[in-house]
Amino acid sequence: MTEGMPQKSSDALGAALLLAPALLVIAIAFLAPLARLAALSFSSPQGVLAAYRELLGDEVFWIVLRNTIGLAAIVTIITLTGGFALALALTRLGGGWRLALFAAVVLPLWVSVLVRTFSWMLLLERNGPINEAMVATGVIGQPVQLLFNFTGVTIAMVHVLLPYAVLPIYAALVKIDPALLKASEGLGASFATTFQRVLLPLSARGVATAAAFVFLLSLSFFVTPALLGGANNMTIPMLIDTFVNERLAWPLAGAASMLLLGLVLGCIAVIGRFVPLGGLAEAR
């Protein structure tokens, strides 16, 4: 291979030149903004660490942090449950049906999260179709509040994040030898037993990858909680937005950004020990 190829040093130079424009964009539009925020977080007139001290000493921050993690956790659990059922159905469906369901799962990924969130605003309204359907079928006596609270945010986020759960779980489930399932069934195991002793252990990596995707994406969600949540559902990304746009408190915005980034990187460090996260990019 190396024989007849140009020397190594010119190869390295060529590689550097080819990579330079892309890395320049990463430097000015990714690294520089993060560095700028880090610098801002230490720029409080009250002292270098004053912004962090103010943030961490404020009860509001802890409530918002609890909201963010709680929402992400609940969204992850519901999305994984639904995602597993869908992935399992995908493995059992035949040709055309499988393709159709697969298309339905990935189609929403192409549509802006903003548009999908707006759709949910219309669907979840007090006089919207979901309330109407539930009243008509007698599930509820009268319309209930589904918007501007935890319920609305959760429903919309589960819907937006579902594909990120289905894809990795499906990838794990299709690799399971069908003979194992037949054997389990043949030996008289119920579906619950087969699920618990065969399906779940053999797809654990896919489920863990899905959980990681969904949880990490939930932590950073801004548009959906901001539009569908109420005053009691503020999350860290919304808090950062109010620091910038309402309070003009740049050191606090910088500190909150660094803490959110730290939270995400911390999760990646922990999760990365168990599942490969390179797939994060391919999931979209």
Binding site: I26, A29, F30, L31, P33, L37, P237, L261, A281
Partner: peptide
């Protein structure tokens, strides 16, 4: 992978500044 992992709001606020 950085731009894919970093929270959009953090990038947005940094870029805005």
């Amino acid at each position: 992978l950085g731009p894919i992992i970093a929270p959009a709001i953090v990038l947005a606020v940094g870029l805005y500044s």
